[in-house]
Simulated assay, not measured.
Amino acid sequence: MIKAHFQVDADGKFNTIELTGHADSGEYGHDIVCAAVSAVVATCINALTSVAHVKPYEEADNEQGGFIRVTKIGPDHDSQIICQTLLDGLMSIQQQYGQYLEVKMFN
């Protein structure tokens, strides 16, 4: 199961996004949940840089896979909208494939 955790500050602004685990919804290369989650997360990170013009700090385990943490997300409007869009996208995936993806928010 992929666990997506969003941490917000006291004002409700996103400051950390962390994803861990594997969906295991299909064979390697044919896992549609993994592909969907990977696509929306990569799009979010790229948009933070190209649209919001911020460079968040990103940690990933490229050797083992199944881990990414994004911090230093800008408090600006564009960065927050991009993160909200990621949350919305992951929630949509969770609606259909909840046995493979868990999305939670923390403050």
Rank of each mutant, 00 (worst) to 15 (best):
H77W: 09
K13N: 12
I45D: 10
V51R: 07
C44L: 11
T49N: 11
T49D: 12
R69I: 06
E18V: 10
A60S: 15
Q94N: 07
V103Q: 10
G21T: 09
H22K: 15
H5S: 04
V8R: 15
F106N: 13
A23Y: 01
N62Q: 14
E27Q: 15
N15W: 12
D76T: 08
M91G: 08
I81E: 11
V8Y: 09
V70P: 12
K3R: 11
V41T: 04
V8S: 07
K3S: 04
E58D: 07
Y100G: 07
H77A: 08
A35R: 14
A47Y: 10
D11P: 00
S50G: 10
N46K: 11
Q84N: 12
I32D: 10
V70C: 10
G74P: 06
V103R: 09
G74A: 09
D31N: 05
G98S: 13
Q99A: 14
H5Q: 09
V70R: 11
L90A: 08
P56Q: 05
F6R: 01
R69Q: 14
L19E: 03
V70A: 11
T71A: 06
D11K: 12
Q94K: 08
C34I: 03
G66T: 03
Q64S: 12
E63D: 15
G12Y: 02
G29R: 12
I45R: 11
Q80G: 03
G98H: 13
Q84H: 08
D11Y: 08
C34G: 05
H5A: 09
V41Y: 01
N107C: 01
Y100L: 06
E27H: 15
G12V: 00
E63T: 15
M1A: 07
C44H: 07
V103T: 12
G98W: 06
T20P: 00
V54C: 09
P75C: 00
A35Y: 14
N107Y: 00
G98T: 10
Y97K: 04
A47C: 10
S92W: 02
D9Y: 05
V40L: 02
L101W: 05
L87G: 00
S38H: 08
S25A: 15
I93W: 02
G74H: 05
A10N: 05
D11R: 09
F67C: 08
P56E: 00
Q64R: 14
K104W: 00
G89V: 03
K13M: 05
D31G: 03
P75R: 09
T43Q: 12
I2N: 00
T16Y: 02
D76K: 03
V41C: 01
H53E: 15
G29I: 13
L90H: 08
N107M: 04
Y97L: 02
C44E: 06
A10Q: 01
Q84I: 00
Q99H: 06
Q7E: 13
Q64C: 04
I73N: 05
Q64F: 03
V51T: 14
E59K: 11
D11Q: 14
I73Q: 06
G66Q: 06
N107T: 04
Y28I: 11
V40E: 03
I68H: 07
L48A: 09
G89S: 10
E102C: 13
E63I: 14
S25K: 04
G66V: 07
C44S: 13
I17N: 05
